[in-house]
Amino acid sequence: MAGAKNKHWAMVIDSAKCIDCKACDVACKRENGIEANGRREVYRNWITSKGVEGTYPNLKQRFEPSQCHHCANTPCYKVCPTSATYKNDDGLIMMDYKRCIVCSTCIAACPYDARYVSKQKKAIDKCTFCAHRIYTGKLPACVDTCPTKVRVFGDLNDPESEVSKILASRHYFVIKPEAGTKPNLYYLT
């Protein structure tokens, strides 16, 4: 599962569509066989919110879905002492669980807090963009299950892909650009 060299996987997120329904969370756990056993810190994707802001009746609440950014300039990859974190040819950041010694250096290095300790695997774990699915032509679980289609996934090397077209026509930003990570998660404004 090394991925094709000519692919550049990316995800475009339109937070304005997110209704915080948790479908992505449950679908991810089912698709990837993750049993959280009630541990709140076990997740590969998440929705952040500052909660209800303001004073009644002038209120607002925002939701921002996120997951591993599969950074091109990859802090977790650089710090891994055992090469447990590796890159596929298509840029996906993957984990070799057998090599992982759970030193947690990568957790500290990740500016997006995308990694967690998996008791199941005795290793650090994170989102793989559902590599096992995308290599067989399917969409990542968080993408296919989303009611409002917050996430769009595809190949940035293909100018005809939906992600390419959206990024060509819409304003977008990345999270923590100052970290210099060159992430592959793009947020629409």
Partner: peptide
């Protein structure tokens, strides 16, 4: 079984 999802 704590180390594995039950369906797995």
């Amino acid at each position: 079984v704590e180390k594995e999802d039950r369906l797995n």
